[in-house]
Structure formats: C-alpha cells, structure tokens
Design a protein around this nucleic acid. Structure first.
Lengths: 129, 129
DNA sequence: ATTTACCTTTACGTAAACGTCAATAGGGAG
DNA sequence: CTCCCTATTGACGTTTACGTAAAGGTAAAT
C-alpha cells in the first residue's frame, strides 16, 4: 500500500465522497498536508478517516468522534491533569459503547426469534403445496 | 406499573421531551389513542417508544427504526411474500448490527490499551513525588 | 491547443430531528 | 370565578452532515 494518498483515492477506498472528506477537514477531524493546493493524505490521515467512519457507523456526531479520535491519536501532553481527563473520557465513552453493545445483543436476539417464527410459517405454507 | 400513560409520564420515564414523543407520532412511529384531545399510551406504545430510543442509540434514523419496529411488532399478514420480505430485512439489519458489534469491540479494545498506557504514566508521575 | 480528468474554494440548498415560542383548551385548587 | 398546571396544534428556528452548482487551476493525453 502507498504511503500517501490523494483525496479521490481515499474517497474510493472508503466509498465516501470527496466532499465528505473535505467537510471532515473543515470540522478539524483531518488535516492533510499540501502539495501546492492539493491535499496529500498520509497513512495516519487514512487511519483517522477510518476512525471517523467507524464513529459514524456507531452513531456519534463528528464532534464526538473528534474527541474520541483525539484520545486514540492524542499528542500525549504527558501532564497529569491531561492524563486524568483522558481517563475520564475513556470511562464515559466506554459506558456508552457498553450500552450499545447491550442494545445490539438484544436486537440480535429478538431478530433471531422473529426470523425463526417467520421461517416456520413459510415452511407451513410451502409444505401445504 | 400502570397499563396506560400520559405523554409526560412517558417523557419522564425515558428522559425525553414531550415534543420528541409527538414528533415520533408525526413520523408514524407511535399512535396512541385519545381521551378527548389528550394522548393515551398503552403498554404496547410504551414498548414501541423504548424501541425507538434503542434505535436512536444505535444510530438509526427514525425511518429505519420504524421499519425495524414494524418487524418486531408486525401485524403478521401471514402472506408468503410478506414473510419473505421480513426475512430479507432481518438479514440486512443483522449485517449492520454485526458490523457495529465489531466496531464497538475494536473501540473497546483500543480504549483498554490507551487507558492502561494512561494509568502507567500517571503512576510514574505519582511515584515521583 | 483542446479535451479529459482531477483538484480547488465559495456558497447556497437540504433532510433529519428536534427546540422553542405562541395561542388555545380543559380541569382542579382555592 | 380565577389562577395554575398540563396538554394540544401550528409555525418557525436550529444544528448536523453533507449535496450540489459555480467558477475556475493544473497536468497529462490526443
């Protein structure tokens, strides 16, 4: 894999529009370097984009996603207060994710039940041929 | 627990505004009966509201959530085509949820790593007292 | 030189999911 | 009866996350 990417390469790789990628930059989620006016994305930028999209799939807003990514990617200031804040954010974030995990597991369970029911009825219909 | 609820009771129970609840009704996700002009919510309505909120936490739009709820809650038409459609929707929905599950698990794993790192650094700072 | 294919910024448009009044109605408490 | 509380409809405002069109720059290919 290349070590730098153009905007449209990234767009293709992740099936998003270039507009979206520029928008994420506007919102401070990415900041690629430039070759002249053109944006150049490093592997680190690519990873950040991947995280943005993951955040989206999880229903976070871009603001929330930025906070989370800054955790992952954080310029460790190494100061005590900073580290403590980070721990708190992680705790909060983890609670949210854990709740979502429960939600999903419940949903999946219920879907299994409904699907089974569905298939049973279909079997009856088909066997009545 | 009571068998019917007012709009503000539900709002309190789930920590949402009455405005939101009425909005869900506008969008066809709920339809409570009326006592005069006033809305009266049954336990079934309450359950639907709960599912709406779960959907929100999972990042679904209200439209998507309505489709999913109609699965759960479906007036089983019992017709073959209907049943098949339901199975397809379940399959689609399950793929999405499974993806989210992976996303969450990855996020949690990474957070664990970051937190451990964080705490290690804090320990060093504190032990340097 | 011109087309083709990207890339750029600026700016306005839009759908979703509510928030926030405003004006109004109905029912108890005093 | 009047005050107060809650509820209702209607209309407009707001934020988020882009889409889309305008108006071009740049560079390779024909």
């Amino acid at each position: 894999m290349a070590s730098t990417f153009s905007i449209s390469e990234l767009a293709k790789q992740f099936s998003v529009t270039t507009r979206a990628i520029r928008f994420y930059e506007d919102k401070g989620l990415l900041n690629p370097t430039r070759n002249g006016r053109n944006r150049v994305y490093s592997k680190r930028d690519r990873t950040r984009l991947k995280l943005v999209l993951r955040g989206k799939r999880l229903g976070f807003t871009l603001d929330e996603t930025r906070e989370i990514i800054d955790l992952y990617d954080g310029q460790r200031s190494g100061e005590k207060r900073q580290l403590e804040l980070m721990c708190e954010k992680i705790t909060t974030s983890r609670k949210l994710l854990t709740q979502q995990l429960r939600d999903i597991q419940q949903s999946l369970t219920e879907m299994d039940r409904i699907e089974a029911n569905c298939k049973k009825q279909l079997d009856q219909i088909n066997s009545a041929t």
